[in-house]
Nucleic acid binder design. Structure first.
Lengths: 338, 338
DNA sequence: CACTCCCTCTGACTAAAGTCAAAGAGTATG
DNA sequence: CATACTCTTTGACTTTAGTCAGAGGGAGTG
C-alpha cells in the first residue's frame, strides 16, 4: 500500500505540475492537439498511423491535418502505391515550428535542472530512467497468441532477422520452429504493439522446451526477457511439465546470463539444433498448484484473454541497463516515443 | 544535455501514458475538471483558494461548484467572518464519490504494480520518491524578500512556533531578530507559497551572521535547507563578507549536521543568544568574484527578482529522507498536494 | 467484375473548457 | 460615509475536443 500511495502522489504531482507546464509551453499559440499532432508527424507519417497512434477519430484528424496544411506547416500527399492512404510531411516552415517546440521544451527542462547541483542532476536522471523502465515493464502485458497470428509472425520474423545478423553462420526464417509444433506462444504487448515473444514446445509430457525467446530492441533493458521466461515456466508448470530445457547460441551472451541467473543449469547437448552452443535445464516447482488462469491456454490468439498477471522476476538482480533504450541520443522530434 | 533528453523523454512518456490513464479513470462519468475540482475541495476549501490553486476563471469555477451542488456532492456556505467568501465542503454523498475516485486511482496504481516483482516495486517506489523530491527542489525558487513582508513574517512566525515546541525552554516571537537588523532575508517559494527562509545579519563588515534558517515541514527532506544555506553564503560573499557564522540550539541535531557537512567548523561561543548551544563558522571563498545577479539584493521583496539560480549542494551527500514528506500515510483525499 | 473492405473526407452535432465584462454584495479604510 | 477594493455570480460568448453517420474513391479477392 505504501507503494500505491507513493506512486499516486507522484502521479498527481507530476501530471499536474510538470506535465501541465509542458503542455502550456507546447501549446502556446496553437491548440494543444494540433501541436501534439505536428509533433507526432515528426519527419513524416501516414494518416492511418497517426490515427492509431494518437487514438483520434478519423474525421477529427482529417480536419486537424487540413488546418496544419492551411497554416503551411505540413504537406499532404497520396501514398505512392496505395492511393487510399495519405502521407503527411512537414514543410520547412513546419520543421521550424517543430524546432521551436523542441527549443521550448528543452528550455523548460533546462530551467528545472538549473535549480539542481551536478550530483543532484545525475541522481534525478538516474531515478527518472529507472522509473520509466519499471513503469514501461509494468505496463507491458504478456498473453498467449496463436503461433500463426500476425503478431506472432511479426515477432518471429524480427527474431529471425536479428539472429541472422548476429550468428556468423546466419539464420533463416525456415530455421524457426513451425507453428504447428509450438504448444504455447506468449507475446508481450506494449500498448498493443508486440514487443517480445517466447514459445513453448512439448516434446514429451515431462519436459517442455522454450524456444524463440525474443525482446524487441526498443523494449530491451526493461527486464522483459526475464518476465517472459518466468511466465513461460509458469505456463509449463500449469500444463503439468516438470522440467523446462532450452538451448542458446554461443553468440548470445546476455541470453546465457539470463538463464544462469534465472536458476538454469547447463546440461549436455540434446536435439539437433545446428545453432545451439549451450544447453540449459531447470526443474519446475511441483508444490501446490499455483492458482492462475493458466491451463489450456495454447493457441487462442483471439485477444480475449488478458495477461495471467503472474509475478515475474526472481530476485533483485534484473540487470537492466546493459542495452536500454537510452543511448540513441536523439532529442525527440523525429521519434515517436510510443 | 543528456539530462534534458532523459527528463523530456520521461515527461512525454509519463504524461501521455500514465497521466492520461489516470485522467481517464478519474473522469469516468463526470467532466474531468469537475472530478478534479471535487478532489481539490477535499474535506473543505474556500472558492478563492480553489480558484488560485487550480488557476480557474472565477465564473467557470462558480458554475462548476454549482453543478456539483446540484448533484448533491457539495454544500456551499458563507464564510462565518467574511461573508464575501464562500466555503465548499463535500456532503456525505460527495465523500462517497471521493472515496470511489480514490479507489479507482488506487486500483490503477495497483494494476500497474501488479506487473512487477517485489524488488522491482521497491525500486520503483524508491526511484519515484527520489524523482519527486528532486523535481520539487528544482522547482523551488529562492529570492530575497523584505524582512517585514507578509511572506517573511509567515515563515518567521512558523519558525518561532516550531522552536517553541522543540526547545525545552520555549521560544517567543520576540526572540526573533527584529526586521531592521536583518540585512538580507531569503525566502524559498514552492509555487509561490513560502516554504522556507534564512536571514543574514551584518554585525560588522567582515563577518555575516546567518539566522533563522528554516524549512517548512512539507518541504523537508528535499535538500532545501542546504540550498538556502548555500545561497546565503553566496549572498554574504557577494556583499563582501569574508566569514559567516551562526549558532544553533543543542536540540536541533539535523541543523548541526547540516552545518558540519556544509564546511562549517565549531567555534567558541559568541554573542548573547540564550538559546544557542553550538557556534559555527565558515570562511567564504574570496577568489575571482562569482558572476551572479547578487549584490545589493536586500529587502526588495517586490517579487520582480527571480532566483539567482546558484548551484546549491556541496557534494553528493544531501542526506535526504530523514524526515521527508512521506510518513503521514494519508492516501490523498484530504490533502492538497500543491 | 461484382463485392467487400479500407481509408479519408464532409457535414452535423454535442460536450467541455475557457474567456470577458458587468453587476451585486461585502469589507476595509481614510 | 464615500471610496476603493474583493469575491462571487450571471450572461453571453468562442474555441477545443470529441462523436457519428454517410459518401466516395481505391484495393484486394473470389
Amino acid at each position: 500500500m505504501a507503494h500505491v500511495t507513493t506512486l499516486r502522489r507522484f502521479n498527481r504531482y507530476f501530471t499536474r505540475r510538470i506535465g501541465a507546464l509542458d503542455e502550456h509551453y507546447l501549446g502556446r499559440d496553437r491548440p494543444l492537439n494540433e501541436a501534439r499532432l505536428l509533433y507526432e508527424i515528426g519527419s513524416g507519417a501516414s494518416l492511418r498511423e497517426l490515427r492509431t497512434r494518437l487514438g483520434l477519430d478519423a474525421g477529427y484528424l482529417s480536419r486537424m491535418v487540413r488546418a496544419l496544411e492551411g497554416q503551411g506547416l505540413v504537406r499532404v500527399t497520396v501514398h505512392p502505391t496505395d492511393s487510399r492512404l495519405r502521407l503527411v510531411a512537414p514543410t520547412p516552415a513546419g520543421r521550424d515550428e517543430l524546432a521551436e517546440q523542441n527549443r521550448r521544451a528543452d528550455a523548460l527542462a533546462e530551467g528545472l535542472l538549473r535549480g539542481l547541483s551536478g550530483s543532484q542532476r545525475d541522481r534525478l536522471t538516474e531515478a527518472v530512467a529507472v522509473t520509466e523502465r519499471l513503469l514501461r515493464l509494468a505496463s507491458i502485458t504478456v498473453r498467449p497468441a496463436g503461433p500463426a497470428s500476425p503478431d506472432a509472425r511479426a515477432c518471429l520474423t524480427a527474431y529471425a532477422a536479428e539472429l541472422d545478423e548476429r550468428f556468423p553462420e546466419g539464420y533463416a526464417v525456415t530455421d524457426l520452429v513451425p507453428p504447428e509444433r509450438i504448444a504455447v506462444l506468449l507475446v508481450a504487448y506494449e500498448e498493443e504493439r508486440p514487443v517480445g515473444c517466447g514459445a513453448l514446445c512439448a516434446p514429451d509430457t515431462d519436459t517442455a522446451e522454450i524456444k524463440h525467446l525474443w525482446v524487441h530492441l526498443d523494449a530491451r533493458g526493461l527486464g522483459l526477457g526475464r518476465r517472459l521466461l518466468t511466465e513461460l515456466e509458469h505456463t509449463a508448470a500449469g500444463r503439468g511439465h516438470r522440467t523446462v530445457r532450452l538451448d542458446t547460441h554461443t553468440a548470445l551472451k546476455e541470453a546465457a546470463a539470463l538463464y544462469r541467473t534465472g536458476g538454469y543449469t547447463e546440461i549436455p547437448a540434446y536435439g539437433d539444433n545446428p545453432h545451439a552452443g549451450h544447453w540449459f535445464e531447470k526443474s519446475l516447482p511441483t508444490g501446490p498448484p499455483v492458482s492462475r488462469p493458466a491451463g489450456g491456454t495454447a493457441c487462442r490468439g483471439d485477444g480475449t484473454q488478458r495477461s495471467p498477471g503472474g509475478r515475474p522476476g526472481i530476485g533483485g538482480t534484473e540487470g537492466h541497463g546493459t542495452e536500454g533504450p537510452e543511448g540513441t541520443g536523439r532529442s525527440g522530434a523525429g521519434r515517436a516515443p510510443r
